[in-house]
Amino acid sequence: MLSIPVGAALCWIYLVWGSTYLSNRIALESMPPSLISGIRFLIAGSVLLLISALSGARLPKLGEWKVAAVPGVLMIAIGQGSMVYAGPMLPSGIIALLFAMLPIWTTLLQWAMPGGTRPSAGVLAGLLLGSAGMALLVGRGSGAGTHWQLEGLVAVVLGTLSWAVAALYMKRRAPQGSALQGAAMQMLTGGACQILVATLCGDWQTFSFGQITPRSGWAVTYLVIVASVITYPVYNWLVKAATPTLVATFAFVNPVVALYLGWLVLDEKMTALMVLSSVLIVCGVIAITFAQARANRGDRLALAEKAAGAGKLQGSGI
């Protein structure tokens, strides 16, 4: 079974990042998309770097900044940025659904990489269940599909692919400092890229901080403190502690959380089909979780048997 820290980290990410779709939607009421993400991550990254320095950690070296810049650009500037960018074009629930492609991208990329292994039957079954649930949810909005902008759809799909590449990169690279410091460097590089995009697009010319409504202000505050300062270090730790496919299951659960929050907070309609699709998605996550736990247990037993066999050989003088 999964360890308690891994399970707790997964649940936290499921709930918090599932709520960011609603928060971004509220923030968009009075702020441009690129500025929302840029300001969010620059503030959060600065806070994390300050906390890291006050805790006695040394300042990052140039080489560490270069390593952190890769997931910073792929995961934050492109991955997160694409979702906020698509916010004015697509319903928040549909953006969350499209992001549920992340586990599929992650599994396929792991399989395609040199030395990659074919996904187990349990993982494939979980991906199939999650994809079926996602398809039902997308089908729910088919009547309004003609109003969805292709530009937004393409942006989110590319964002999920970029996030999957970043997760695999982080898994294969040696750790660069603490999870706290790594998250800070990623946020600062990703946030800086988004501020640059906002500047090039002329967002500063039509924006003033005085136009931010209280609702948008509280939404951005939540995104900075809870969704970024607290949760990104948890995610960075989880990427190292669990398999990429298991970590990526948050993208299956996030749409469920986003839809239910829309129902509770924004009084959006909840149908029986939505409930059924949510159940399929959760069952898919459970299947992947148990398949990964079984595979990890098998790997540990194989290593233990190998070590025991080596010990016997040494004891016999061979």
Rank of each mutant, 00 (worst) to 15 (best):
residue 278 S to E: 00
residue 294 R to V: 06
residue 163 W to G: 07
residue 74 L to A: 03
residue 254 N to C: 00
residue 3 S to V: 12
residue 201 C to K: 05
residue 261 L to V: 02
residue 110 Q to D: 04
residue 265 V to A: 05
residue 69 A to K: 11
residue 110 Q to N: 06
residue 2 L to C: 02
residue 8 A to V: 06
residue 264 L to V: 09
residue 17 W to Q: 03
residue 111 W to V: 03
residue 297 R to F: 05
residue 26 I to M: 12
residue 16 V to N: 15
residue 287 A to Q: 05
residue 202 G to Y: 08
residue 52 S to V: 09
residue 273 L to V: 00
residue 302 A to Q: 07
residue 103 P to L: 04
residue 231 T to G: 13
residue 3 S to K: 11
residue 304 A to G: 14
residue 34 S to P: 03
residue 237 W to Y: 13
residue 157 V to E: 00
residue 294 R to Y: 15
residue 60 P to F: 13
residue 19 S to A: 12
residue 106 T to I: 05
residue 28 L to S: 02
residue 176 Q to N: 14
residue 231 T to L: 09
residue 117 T to W: 10
residue 34 S to G: 12
residue 259 L to D: 01
residue 315 G to D: 14
residue 29 E to D: 12
residue 15 L to N: 06
residue 113 M to Q: 08
residue 16 V to K: 15
residue 113 M to H: 12
residue 132 A to C: 13
residue 173 R to N: 09
residue 43 I to R: 05
residue 132 A to D: 08
residue 41 F to R: 06
residue 92 S to R: 06
residue 79 G to M: 03
residue 223 L to N: 14
residue 136 L to W: 11
residue 83 M to D: 15
residue 31 M to K: 13
residue 23 S to G: 03
residue 62 L to N: 09
residue 222 Y to E: 02
residue 111 W to I: 07
residue 73 V to I: 05
residue 39 I to G: 09
residue 51 I to G: 07
residue 292 Q to P: 05
